Each structure stands twice: as C-alpha cells, then as structure tokens.
Computed example of a mutant assay.
Amino acid sequence: MSEFALRVLVEFGGGETYVIGTATLIAPYVVLTAKHVLDEITTRFGTETDEDGTPVIADYSIRLYQCLPGPTYIIYQVVKAWSHPDTDISVLHLALFRSSSRELLRNSGAKMKWRHPPLAFGPPRLGERLAAFGYHSSKVDTRPAENGNYHLELTDAPTTSTGLVEEILPQGQPAGNFTFPCYRIAARFDGGMSGGPVFDQEGALCGIISGSLSPGDDQDEPISYVCMLWPILRLTISVNRGPKFPRNVKYPMAHLVRDGQLHVMPHSFNGIDPKLIWAWYSGTVSDS
C-alpha cells in the first residue's frame, strides 16, 4: 500500500516539517488527495500571487513520501495542483526530489517503475464492503545532517479500515461538509487519513477518503464519507504526457482514460451516463 498511498508533508528550509495527510498515486507523477488537505496547507502556511493572479507557494515545499520494495524511499515535490469546485479532490503534479536509490540520483533519466491501481469512477454497490487506507497519528523529528541537509524521522500509523457502503449521495448532502458526489460508509477514518485510497472488492480505486462525522466506538458504527472519482474527469489539467502528446497544453483528465494513461476496468463507468463519458472524452464539457 505504501506504493500507492503517499504521505503528504510540508517542509520549510532548515528542517521545520509538518505531516498533513495522505495522497493516492493514479499515474506517473500524478496523485489525488482531498482538496481540504491542500486547503489546510495553503490556509495555514500561506501563498503568494504571481503576475496572472495564480496562487504560488514560495516559503515552503509540499513533498510526498513513497516507500517501494527494498525498501527504496522516494521523495517527490508538488509542482502544480488543480482542484475542482464540485468535489473534495485535488490533483497534484509531482517532480522527483530525492531518493534512496543511487541509480535515480545519478541518472535523472533512469526509468521509474510505476504501479498504480485501476480506477472506478462510478459509485460502488450499496452493501459492498470496501477497504480504505491512510496514515494517522504522525510524528516527525528532524536533525541537522551533512552538507546543510537534515535527517527526517517520521513515525505514523498506517491503517486499513473496512466497512459497508450504506448510502449513495450523487449530489452529496444538502448541507454540511460533504456537499459533493460521495457515499457514506461504515468505516473508521482518523485524522491524517484524508486523501487516502478506497478500494472496491475488484481491487479498483473507487474513491478518496474525505472525512468522518463520527469515528465510532464499541457501541456505535462509524459514519464516514468517500469522494466519488467521476468529477475529476472534467477537470482541466496541463501535465505533460510524453513525446507522443503536445506539450504545455490543457486538457480534461478524461483524456488520460481515453488515451490509456489511467487504468480502468469493465465496471469503471457503471452508473455514469455514456453520453457524459463521450462528451468528456471529446473535450466538449468544461470544468466549470
């Protein structure tokens, strides 16, 4: 799971570091997290504004930590982010920052070995048992190292939580914190798990952890909410996709599915109008 679920940290020069949440890898250098995780970062630590009015981060970096078999540790830096107003999901574009792999450090062109799950954009079935994953109870300690760098020691609680889907909310709740397409699940989500992956019984990523009204206890079931993925299909991004595609252009995320860069399964679009899917593929639906 630590290949797909990355830890989200804020790092200042000199080692001041904060652990904020979880993010989910869906394609090379592309991850999803909860929009409120990104909002917490920018509200808490601030942004500046460039010439065209776009918020930019200047005083700190958002970095994501991944653990691969070996173990190999890879640290990415967020270079750009996009959020859709109709959901609690943000898309983050990453760049390689550091790695415990000497090959990657010596050769910036070394081929990364990516594994990422298939995506299910429609809602799961009522009563289906799902599995969610995220990191909570995080503690971080830093101390000076050689060459002006610092050593970071991070401890947390990697947690899998399972539960049954109890309610599908195509428009979200009419009021409160979950007013976007989502579903209610009887699974415990603790602070720090926001942005983590939720998987269906076929192993597809079927949502992103948003939050809980109640974590539950021995007597009461937890009341938690998961963002559906379909709203991100109409989100406009500008991640460069390799030599076969134009560079520095904007396109809807649905094109990543259309062109085979996001993995899907036969049930990935269950519950979604095929006309909408075709419109997203053709790029005729705006992200507004």
Rank of each mutant, 00 (worst) to 15 (best):
R44H: 10
R106T: 09
H93D: 07
I89E: 03
A132E: 02
T54Q: 13
P85W: 12
S100R: 08
L92F: 07
K80G: 07
L38W: 01
P123V: 07
T160R: 13
E167K: 05
E51T: 11
L119G: 00
P85M: 00
P158K: 04
D59G: 08
G134D: 06
V140E: 02
Q77R: 13
H36R: 02
L104W: 14
G163L: 01
Y76I: 10
N149I: 12
F97M: 10
N147E: 10
T155D: 07
L94D: 00
I74C: 04
A131T: 15
A175M: 05
G122P: 01
N107V: 14
E103M: 14
F133K: 02
G176A: 09
R129N: 15
I62K: 01
I74H: 04
L164E: 09
D39T: 01
F133E: 03
L152E: 08
T72H: 11
T142A: 13
E40N: 02
P71Y: 13
V79Q: 11
A145C: 14
S99H: 12
I41F: 00
P158M: 09
Y73W: 11
G176E: 12
Y60M: 02
D50E: 12
G148W: 11
I74N: 02
Q66D: 11
S138A: 14
N149E: 13
I89L: 06
L119Q: 05
L152R: 14
S108N: 11
K80L: 05
V79G: 14
Q77C: 13
Q66Y: 02
G122C: 02
L126H: 06
A34N: 08
L164Y: 09
F45T: 04
P117I: 02
I168R: 03
D59H: 12
A81T: 13
Q171A: 04
I41H: 00
L96V: 11
S61C: 07
V79N: 12
P71Q: 12
H93Y: 08
R129L: 07
G70W: 09
K139Y: 15
N107F: 15
P55K: 11
D39F: 03
P170H: 07
Y73D: 13
R102D: 11
L68C: 03
N147K: 13
H116A: 06
P170K: 12
G127D: 06
T42H: 00
A131K: 13
A175G: 15
N147C: 12
W114Q: 08
E146S: 13
F45M: 05
L94A: 01
A175F: 09
W114P: 06
P85N: 11
K35S: 05
H136V: 08
N149D: 15
V78H: 05
E166S: 08
T47V: 08
G176R: 01
I57N: 04
A145F: 14
